[in-house]
């Protein structure tokens, strides 16, 4: 067959063209905040190892408005990231069957979210001042 002349559309700016992609990119971008937050916590561990005064100074340094703004943003991204992964969890599993019937996807998602909420509450309760 003779080669047909075709037009290939460019992909530039693809993720801005559909809200679904914007949310997808937000999920991918959340890893930046999660990494930065992990580094902050690791620094805290290092300061704890170095002694009480270092640890207190580290905590002091986190009290500024910039730090609070960063932590609020990180929290929002972590919550969104967790939600997106629970949302796609059924897709990453083979069919789960109970008593010969397929467990509905919605139940898998809800179980993941409920488990996270319960573990978070337990953790808050365990480390409460």
């Amino acid at each position: 067959m003779a080669q047909v002349k075709t037009y290939v559309r460019p992909m530039a700016g693809w993720w801005r063209k559909n809200p679904f992609y914007v949310w997808y990119m937000a999920r991918e971008a959340s890893c930046v905040f999660i990494t930065l937050y992990a580094l902050v916590v690791l620094t805290g561990l290092l300061r704890l190892y170095q002694g009480k005064s270092q640890f207190d100074a580290w905590r002091e340094s986190l009290a500024g408005p910039l730090s609070i703004a960063f932590h609020s943003a990180a929290l929002a991204f972590v919550l969104y990231h967790s939600w997106t992964w629970f949302k796609v969890m059924p897709k990453t599993l083979p069919f789960v069957r109970l008593g010969g019937r397929r467990v509905p996807d919605r139940l898998i998602v809800v179980s993941g979210v409920v488990a996270t909420v319960l573990v978070s509450i337990a953790l808050f309760w365990a480390v409460r001042p």
């Binding site: 559909n18 679904f20 992609y21 997808y24 991918e28 796609v88 059924p90 897709k91 990453t92 599993l93 083979p94």
Partner: peptide, 26 residues
């Protein structure tokens, strides 16, 4: 596949291709 997941959203026959792909990552 980076699990964008939009393929499964738009599928008119409920095939859920994202699921097939991600099961095959396992």
């Amino acid at each position: 596949c980076t699990l964008v997941g939009y393929c499964s959203e738009v599928c008119p026959k409920g095939v859920d291709p994202a699921r097939a792909i991600n099961q095959n990552k396992i």
